[in-house]
Amino acid sequence: MNTVNEMSLSFPSKSCNEAFARSAVSAFIMNLDPTINELSDIKTAVSEAVTNCIVHGYRRVGGTIYIKGKITDTGKVIIKIRDKGCGIEDVSKAMEPLYTTAPEEERAGLGFAVMQSFCDKVRVKSKVGSGTTVTLEKTIAPHNA
């Protein structure tokens, strides 16, 4: 499995960058010729991860969000989204559907569940005080016309 393309991005944790991040990632994978559904799945998952950096990781303090993208020769898309924010104490609990630490802000607690259902694989690495990295993987099926 060889890498055929790569990119990296960094931007401040402003909520207007949620739209920027998912658009940038969708532009990056465009030459794999994804279906509308595949594209929408990846955009949604990226939006969840970036929003989490802003509303949880960098809550009140702000900071820089880092995205790294990779495409392999098998059509696999790997997107890493990282913050250097507060980190997550109990990752498996945080990933439970409907679990949220911000219900008063109208969060539904569905972000991780959405990432898991819209991608093939989701990995979360986090350390309290140093930040969180979410890795999303999804293979874009080559369509044989």
Partner: peptide
Amino acid sequence: SFMDSSGIGLVMG
């Protein structure tokens, strides 16, 4: 044209 889980929070709210 697009929504993430924030749309669910919006409806629940």
